[in-house]
Every structure is written in structure tokens, then in C-alpha cells.
């Protein structure tokens, strides 16, 4: 019976990264289509912290591998641990959310197992042994259906395309194992966390993004975000200029978001930006230039100065409350 192994991820605070839940539901879908069963793996210093949570998502088993050497995430130490577990379980598919860690780690696991890999999988098609994956290419201008022909197949899963798994689906068996630990030629030095009181960009229901048109003044964008409990995003131009932290970049080579509402202010709508927000449910664009390509994907466009519109918008929204 095909085994689908989904690798869970803990945040620096030890809590489960939310995108893991989307990967779990993708894993479940894959297991159903392939006629197999879902397993979840987590390695680290203290995976037990989220054991109770992981139990409830309808997996056959949750495999926890704790080791002091795995305190700080490094692809070089996590890959042997995951690959050895996958071999022991005879996993056919290994998947993980398309987070920074997923993209760093899984190709290394795939390399170890000489497995072919598909990045940013958006859909799982077919059944039984005949499974294909849909993934974006050329900044999402092309969707490709690909087939992986190696015995073990590796995937990262795009969180915006699969619902978050719901808890309370029975209790999976929790198994502990001692992870394979190998010496590493890389060592962790430090992690500078960008702390924000706002919701996580990839998880927020509403995202307010600013572009070069803000000239670096994010006051009104942040104000509107706080009024709506929204996350703040940005275009590459803004991150390059150092106006906001890098990890707020939305796009082909940044974060992919799909909130209920995405407001783009002073963003032209380059294809690389669109690649990261085109699947948002409702898109609003505020731009001075009526020809800006962002209007081609916007449900509601306003040709206007963002410095005038944003304060007005905040006042008007306040009236709804």
C-alpha cells in the first residue's frame, strides 16, 4: 500500500507552522487518490510539544524523532533523519509545505533518495499508480502537469491551494524514533526574527500591500492593516529599497498569498508580483496610472493617489463599524 509521508514544521517558538496543516490535507488527498495511507513526521529538539495536535488530523501514525543535535534547523542534519525514516517506512511520497524550510530541506532529502521532485504542487490528479501533479512555471504563466518516475517521489505543496486540515479526526498512533544524526559541515550561528504583532502574511484573511508608489511611507498602509486586522505585504521594489523586511515580499520569488481581500497600493502589477497574489479572492488596486497592469487582475480598481485614498478608505471603513 502506498505510503505518503508529510513532514511537519515547527516555528522557532515550537508551535506548528500553519502551512503544515495545508500540507497534511494535501497528503490526505494524495493518500486517498493513490489508495494509500498518510503518515506524519516531525524531527527536532522537542517535537513532542505538538504531538497532541498532530494526532488529530486523521493520519495512520505520527512519527516523532527527537535529538539534541537537531535543536536548530539545518538541511544537512534534518535531511538524513527524514530520509532514513522514509526508507524505514518505505514511503512512496514525501511531502512538505512550500515554506522556506520545505524548499531548503526536501530537495536535499530527494537527493539522498535519488528521487525526482516537484516544487509548489497546486493540484494532485489521477489515481492509483497513475498520479500526476500540477505545478506553476514561468511565474505562474504556465501550469504544467508533471509525472515523477522515480520509485520515491518528493513534493512541496503550495499552502494556498489546499485547505487547512481540520483537527478532531480520531487519534493517530504516536511513535517515537531516534533520528539518524550525522555530523554537519554547516553550523547555525543565529536567527534574527522579524517580530510583528500583525498576522502572518501567508495566513491573513486580508493583506494590504504597498509598492514603489508609497515612496517608502507605509504609515497609511500599516494603519489600514491594523484597522482590518490585516497583514502587510510589499513588492520587490519596496524590499530592495529596505523600506520593509524582506520576508514581506509577495511574488514569484517571495511569498504566495491568497487572502479573501488583497489591496495593492502603488504597485504596478509586474508578472512576478501577480504570481504571488493572483489567486486572492477579491483584489483591489489603487494606482495613479490607469494603464498599470495591476488593473487587469483587480476586481475593483481606483485610478487615484494612494496618499489621498488610503486615509479616506480608513475613515469610510470606520463608519461600517
Amino acid at each position: 500500500m502506498p505510503i505518503v509521508l508529510i513532514v511537519a514544521e515547527q516555528q522557532p517558538d515550537g508551535n506548528l507552522r500553519k502551512a503544515t496543516l495545508n500540507a497534511i490535507s494535501a497528503g490526505k488527498q494524495l493518500a486517498e487518490k493513490a489508495g494509500g495511507e498518510l503518515h506524519i513526521a516531525l524531527v527536532g529538539k522537542d517535537p513532542a510539544k505538538v504531538a497532541d495536535e498532530l494526532k488529530g488530523y486523521g493520519a495512520k501514525a505520527v512519527h516523532l524523532g527527537a535529538a539534541a543535535e537537531l535543536e536548530h534547523y539545518l538541511a544537512e542534519t534534518y535531511a538524513p533523519a527524514i530520509a532514513a525514516l522514509a526508507q524505514e517506512l518505505k514511503a512512496d511520497y514525501i511531502g512538505m509545505a512550500s515554506t522556506a524550510q520545505g524548499k531548503d530541506l526536501l530537495p536535499r532529502v530527494a537527493g539522498r533518495l535519488r528521487a525526482a521532485m516537484a516544487t509548489d504542487v497546486m493540484a494532485i490528479n489521477g489515481s492509483g499508480a497513475d498520479i500526476t501533479f500540477t505545478r506553476p512555471m514561468w511565474a505562474g504563466n504556465v501550469f504544467a502537469d508533471v509525472k515523477l518516475t522515480t520509485p520515491v517521489k518528493v513534493l512541496t505543496l503550495r499552502a494556498t491551494e489546499f485547505p487547512a486540515a481540520a483537527g478532531g479526526q480520531g487519534a493517530a498512533e504516536v511513535k517515537t524514533f531516534s533520528p539518524k544524526v550525522e555530523a554537519s559541515k554547516t553550523k547555525f550561528v543565529d536567527f534574527k526574527e522579524v517580530k510583528s504583532a500583525r498576522p502572518e502574511l501567508t495566513e491573513a484573511r486580508v493583506v494590504i500591500s504597498g509598492g514603489r508608489g508609497t515612496k517608502g511611507d507605509f504609515k497609511e498602509i500599516e494603519g489600514l492593516a491594523d484597522d482590518l486586522g490585516a497583514a502587510v505585504g510589499a513588492s520587490r521594489a519596496v524590499c530592495d529599497a529596505g523600506w520593509v523586511p524582506n520576508d514581506l515580499q509577495v511574488g514569484q520569488t517571495g511569498k504566495v498569498v491568497a487572502p479573501a481581500l488583497y489591496i495593492a497600493a502603488g504597485i504596478s502589477g509586474a508578472i512576478q508580483h501577480l504570481a504571488g497574489m493572483k489567486s486572492s479572492k477579491t483584489i483591489v488596486a489603487i494606482n495613479k496610472d490607469p494603464e498599470a497592469p495591476i488593473f487587469q487582475v483587480a476586481d475593483y480598481g481606483m485610478v487615484a493617489d494612494l496618499f489621498k485614498v488610503l486615509p479616506e478608505l480608513r475613515a469610510e471603513l470606520a463608519k461600517l463599524k
Binding site: T132, V142, F143, A144, D145, V146, L148, V284, G301
Partner: peptide, 26 residues
């Protein structure tokens, strides 16, 4: 070991509208 079976264009978003002012947008 990866076969690209088929490429397709992503589904297009339906055309939106321009709104005249902030009250109309809200």
C-alpha cells in the same frame, strides 16, 4: 525522471471594474 506531460494557461480572472471614489469602493 520528471515527465512534463502537458502545459496549460492558468485560468484567467474575470474582468473587474473601476470605481469612482472611496464610498463606491467600500
Amino acid at each position: 525522471a520528471i515527465q512534463v506531460l502537458k502545459m496549460s494557461a492558468p485560468p484567467a480572472r474575470k474582468a473587474g471594474i473601476k470605481v469612482a471614489d472611496v464610498p463606491a469602493l467600500v
